[in-house]
Simulated scan of single mutants.
Amino acid sequence: MKAIRVAAYGGLDAMTLAKLDDPVPGDDEVLIDVAAAAVNPIDWKIVSGAMKAFIPLPLPFTPGVDAAGTVLAVGRNVSTLAPGDEVMGFIGIVGAYANRIVVDPARLARKPARLSFTDAAATPAATLTAWQALHEHGELRKGQSVLIHAAAGGVGSAAVQLAKLAGAHVIGTASPGNREYVQSLGAAEVIDYHATDFAKQVSDVDLVLDLVGGTTQARSWSVLKRGGILVSTVSKPDTGRGNKAQVTGKHFATRSDGPQLAALGALHASGDLRIHIDSVFSLPEASHALARSMGGHVRGKVVLDMAA
């Protein structure tokens, strides 16, 4: 098999393409022939070493959290999947940048026939993150208003659509080139963060989904109504500031959940959710794919095609 390996933390030049023995599934695992893997910001943060204090990993490791492909073999205790099944999943914190992987089947969902492997690989982490942020942590309800930062990115794109499906009034922040795109996803308002201070345009929202952190998060407290919720995927909100504003701040790590992913996959299959692929790279081009993600302004998802 071929896999991207990281032997030392650092820049993207720390990533190399290696030939390895095919993994063998344990009794409770499945072996997947990977067709595509998605690129997520967590990937390059891990490769750089920025996350090593929180996510210690033995070196070398293979990056990647999202994969889609075909089951080749199953462990003797696995009854939910069989060879030939097409699947997708948020497989864990590393491992997806390879053309063979072993995975806990509880992390997987069957790939909807309507989705290509490229689209399926782009679905799990972003869509699970958006759903859990909005519904499990943000407690979003019909008729509420939500401000979504970085609305054109992978998680943001899914969140805009899911919030709209929930009956919320959706406001997104994005670059001017992504205005029409974010509107097409269901946002009622799109704020150009280059030209406008969102804190002067938005007020009394029920929920803020912070996918940026830093000063964007700090300025988001003021737009919430009393009792509102700020949910961040990137950094822990300041509890003191939240208490002072009489709002709640939450930070969470996405949970891999096969059944939840299957339900979200059904929304994709029905056409209620759609995936936008920003760009596709081959496995040997993984460093270029991560550089694309690191550069920001990605519309939707960057994907590695194992057959390219």
Rank of each mutant, 00 (worst) to 15 (best):
V87R: 06
V87E: 03
G89R: 02
G89T: 12
F90G: 05
I91W: 07
I93T: 15
I93H: 08
V94P: 03
G95F: 07
A96T: 03
Y97V: 07
Y97F: 15
Y97R: 07
A98Q: 09
N99P: 08
R100G: 03
R100L: 06
I101M: 10
I101E: 03
I101D: 07
I101T: 01
I101P: 00
V102A: 04
V102G: 06
V102P: 10
V103N: 03
V103Y: 03
D104S: 12
P105W: 00
A106K: 14
R107L: 05
R107H: 14
R110M: 12
R110K: 15
K111W: 05
P112L: 01
A113N: 13
A113P: 04
A113W: 11
R114K: 15
L115P: 10
L115T: 10
S116V: 09
F117V: 05
F117K: 01
D119T: 13
A120C: 12
A121G: 04
A121H: 09
P124L: 02
T127E: 00
T127R: 09
T127A: 10
W131M: 01
Q132F: 00
A133I: 06
L134H: 04
L134F: 07
H135G: 02
H135L: 13
H135V: 11
E136T: 13
H137N: 13
H137T: 09
E139M: 14
R141H: 14
K142T: 15
K142W: 09
V146S: 01
V146C: 08
L147H: 12
A150V: 01
A152M: 01
G153L: 02
G154K: 06
G154C: 03
G154D: 02
G154F: 00
G154I: 01
V155D: 04
V155Q: 02
G156E: 05
G156S: 09
G156D: 03
S157G: 02
S157T: 00
A158R: 00
A159N: 04
Q161K: 00
L162R: 07
A163D: 09
A163L: 04
A163Y: 05
A163M: 10
K164Q: 10
K164T: 11
A166F: 00
G167F: 07
A168P: 01
I171Y: 09
G172A: 04
G172D: 05
G172P: 02
T173Y: 05
T173N: 07
S175I: 03
S175P: 11
P176V: 11
P176Q: 11
G177R: 14
G177E: 12
G177P: 10
N178E: 11
N178V: 09
R179G: 09
Y181A: 08
Y181W: 08
V182H: 03
V182S: 02
Q183D: 09
S184C: 09
S184H: 11
S184E: 10
L185A: 03
G186S: 05
G186N: 04
E189H: 14
E189K: 08
V190H: 01
I191Q: 10
I191T: 09
I191D: 08
Y193T: 12
Y193Q: 11
A195R: 15
A195L: 15
T196W: 08
T196S: 14
D197W: 11
D197H: 15
D197R: 15
D197V: 05
D197S: 14
D197E: 15
F198A: 00
A199R: 10
A199D: 13
V202K: 13
D204A: 13
D204G: 12
